[in-house]
Design a binder for these strands. Structure first.
Length: 771
DNA sequence: TTCTTCACGCTTTTT
DNA sequence: GCGTGAAGAA
């Protein structure tokens, strides 16, 4: 690698190139972070403190000062999106030079780049395929089946998680002890891991974890390769350092040995990926790991109002393992964070939509609103409500384009045509569409392939020469093999987009969906069309397949429409919105019970960080909701307000139990009339008799109500409103459990409601306002 | 080989 | 409460 040496020599420090106009407008801390070019730097960047700006400016500054050439800077992010944004923003400062930043990318894409150059050092060929989760699971299933393990008791998914965890921790099969593997199939875990790795090698394939792990192994075993990269990378920049796992940490440490110029940027309070191996500890330990490191704290927040920041800071202060920051803003005032208790998930969606409509009517855009949920099942109620009211919305994240079955099938066809040895792809399409090739035939083929030590597609040819497989399966296989040969032939002369179209048509794959009566079949066909279009952006089929194996979304971002954003809290990281709705702040939902069961205190702190991330997305207004009753997996459950609600500092919060009533269209009856709610009226609450854990919020329990006419005593829920305010005789009202009803008798505080349709759901509990 | 029925388990998710 | 996935039935 003499070339690289030469290039490095040529690039010895040059005098600064020119003035630095890009530094203008940065605050002193930001400048410090940009200009500290010697030695390790930790930039602790709180939410909304201009983290990306610092990172991009620093990169531009390094180039402008002549400290390094573009190809001598390693800049790592976690997501493709972050890498893309970085590239764009650096480009806007330094122009075309940005094209030469070839080491700006995700941990995985950079690792893939390195690994393709040295694949043979870990027993792979440079053209190795990168498996997706689907392929990985299919392979693991085979491995488990081959070891005669009860697949129901020990699932492939379970093993996949285990292996992922090991890989996240940088452990190869040789490093995993039997003890570690004990949690799977009575100690067989470690062995299965080894078998799986062997199979991968035989297939010339990698899973995501391997990209890092193999690179790591190369760095550790081949000092010469490592020092080649040491010479190359003069500057290292890492985004979202708090999300690095052990493997990534080791990877970085090894590379950083070559240059002290490692700069990591992150926020310990926003570490929310512990469940997939991220170690907050990495950032907490940085000063110890890299002695003499300069620590720069960015604490000036440019995003949120005083109240939002105050609420978020107060909440996160309850965490113990953190470095600690004091965010401040010049933006005083603004609205307090609203906290509302509602009846159930539907009431929550109704109330939130009302809030959004209200916001929209004040000349604000829908696109400025977002609803951030803890778990994706919470989205359903909101989607239903958005559709009912005709509000424009989009779900961010959600099912990924390249993970859809039809897209994976199409890719499998392309992979099978491209390479005869891609067993997993071949296996996937062998009976899709149905060709009469069932499990038994596939079994026979696999045995044959293993015995002859050839790929599956090759085994098919051998078997067709015998009469081991007959009937429908035989004809099916013969056509498939013939088709693949023909496609392989025309692939030489045809652009890959057209090739894909031909393959999908001739294989009968498109026809399969066209004949499907399922309403979503049309959507699948549309996706296939989109796929063919997307392929056009790549010069070669190879290039396209490499791209999709490292990326989960199509690059097209549709931001132009004025839509409400609906997403999980995890998906919201890095985004901001003037108005943020935070539903489902209930114990067991948020913090998630399951998370607490698994990880105890550490998980609770991570959930709290998630709450912090949620609040700090808001620029102007944040509204938190919690319900009294929740339907989870079809079952009603009475729930308590989240402890996070109680942890919010009172000075920055305005709390009340929201108890509106609704007319037949399900719309709010009387605006602002937080009078007695229909729910309480009809269900005879017994005040304060329930088990009650949350300080401040008083819960009352209801009796089972499965009746047509319900009578009850109206109780005041909101202290400042008369009980029967706004309710009139004959008025049609809507009740979540009982459907539409009519007020029959209205006599002072007593009223009777007759429902047209009897409900049979158990009415559980409500809340009264915080005292 | 494909159709039918029952049991199970169910977060967050990038690469 | 619903979708998936594996085991029996046609």
């Amino acid at each position: 690698m003499a070339d690289i040496q030469k290039i490095s020599e040529m690039a010895r420090p040059k005098p600064p190139i020119g003035p630095a106009p890009y530094l203008q407008g940065l605050n002193p801390e930001q400048c410090e972070a940009v200009e500290a070019l010697d030695g390790p730097v930790l930039v602790l960047a709180g939410a909304g403190t201009g983290k990306t700006r610092v990172l991009t400016t620093r990169l531009a500054h390094i180039l402008n000062q002549g400290r390094a050439q573009p190809w001598e800077i390693l800049c790592v992010t976690f997501t493709n999106k972050a890498a893309r944004e970085m590239r764009n923003r650096v480009g806007s400062i330094i122009g075309d030079t940005v094209e030469r930043l070839q080491w700006l990318g995700t941990f995985h894409s950079i690792s893939a780049q390195i690994l393709r150059r040295h694949a043979e050092l870990v027993g792979l060929k440079s053209a190795f395929t990168i498996l997706d989760t689907d392929d990985q699971l299919r392979l693991l299933k085979q491995v488990i089946a081959a070891e005669n393990i009860d697949e129901k008791r020990w699932t492939a998914r379970h093993l996949a998680n285990l292996i992922d965890n090991w890989k996240n921790r940088g452990l190869g099969p040789d490093k995993v002890t039997e003890q570690d593997g004990w949690s799977f199939a009575n100690g067989k875990g470690a062995k299965l891991y080894g078998v799986y790795q062997e199979r991968l090698k035989a297939l010339n394939a990698c899973d995501f974890g391997d990209l890092l792990l193999h690179t790591l192994a190369i760095f550790l075993k081949h000092e010469d390769v490592l020092s080649e990269y040491h010479r190359r990378f003069r500057y290292l920049l890492v985004d979202e350092y708090q999300d690095t796992n052990v493997a990534q940490y080791l990877w970085l440490r090894l590379l950083a040995r070559g240059s002290a110029n490692l700069c990591v940027v992150g926020d310990d309070d926003q570490s929310i990926y512990g469940w997939r191996g991220a170690e907050v500890d990495n950032i907490l330990r940085f000063e110890k790991d890299f002695p003499g490191a300069k620590v720069v704290r960015l604490e000036r927040n440019y995003r949120s109002t005083e109240h939002i920041l105050g609420a978020a800071s107060g909440l996160i202060a309850a965490n113990t393992s953190r470095l600690g920051k004091t965010l401040w803003t010049g933006d005083s005032g603004g609205e307090k964070v609203q906290v509302r208790g509602v009846w159930d998930g539907e009431a929550e969606a109704r109330a939130a939509c009302e809030e959004i409509e209200n916001w929209h009517s004040k000349d604000n855009a829908y696109a400025d609103c977002s609803v951030l949920v803890r778990a994706s099942w919470q989205m359903r109620a909101f989607e239903e409500r958005f559709i009912a009211l005709g509000l424009p919305y989009r779900v961010v994240g959600g099912p990924r384009f390249f993970e859809r079955a039809e897209i994976r099938d199409a890719h499998a066809y392309l992979r099978a045509v491209r390479s005869n040895a891609d067993d997993l792809a071949f296996e996937r399409i062998i009976n899709v569409p149905k060709r009469g090739i069932g499990a038994t035939s596939v079994q026979k083929l696999q045995t044959a392939a293993r015995n002859m030590n050839v790929p599956l597609a090759e085994a098919v040819r051998h078997i067709l020469a015998t009469d081991e497989i007959g009937g429908k399966a035989r004809t099916g296989l013969r056509t498939l093999v013939g088709d693949i040969d023909r496609w392989r032939e025309i692939a030489k002369s045809l652009p890959h987009g057209e090739l894909a179209e031909i393959i999908l048509d001739e294989s009968g794959y498109t026809a399969m969906w066209r004949d499907d009566k399922n309403p979503q079949a049309q959507g699948r066909l549309d996706n296939l069309k989109e796929l063919i279009q997307a392929m056009g952006a790549f010069d070669t089929l190879e290039g396209y397949l490499e791209h999709v194996s490292l990326v989960s979304e199509l690059d097209v971002e549709r931001r132009d429409d004025d839509q409400i954003s609906l997403m999980t809290l995890h998906a919201a990281k890095g985004l901001e919105f003037p108005m943020v709705i935070l539903p489902g702040w209930e114990e067991s939902v948020f913090p998630s019970q399951r998370s607490l069961d698994e990880g105890g205190k550490a998980s609770l702190e991570e959930e709290r960080r998630l709450a912090y991330v949620g609040l700090t997305r808001a620029r102007q207004q944040a509204i938190i909701y919690f319900a009294a009753n929740r339907q989870i997996y079809g079952r009603w459950q009475a729930v308590l307000p989240s402890r996070f609600v109680d942890e919010l500092p009172p000075d920055h919060v305005e709390a009340r139990a929201d108890t509106g009533y609704y007319n037949q269209a399900g719309q709010h009856g009387q605006s602002g009339a937080a009078g007695n709610s229909v729910e309480e009226t009809v269900s005879q609450f017994d005040d304060g008799r329930s088990t009650y854990a949350s300080p401040g919020w008083k819960r009352f329990q209801a009796k089972k109500a499965a009746v047509k006419t319900i009578e009850g005593t109206a109780r005041r829920v909101s202290a400042n409103k008369e009980s029967s305010n706004g309710l009139k005789h004959g008025m049609r009202i809507f009740h979540q459990k009982f459907g539409y009803g009519r007020i029959e008798i209205l006599d002072g505080d007593k009223l009777t409601v007759a429902f047209e349709k009897a409900g049979n759901k158990k009415v559980m509990a409500g809340f009264v306002e915080k005292a």
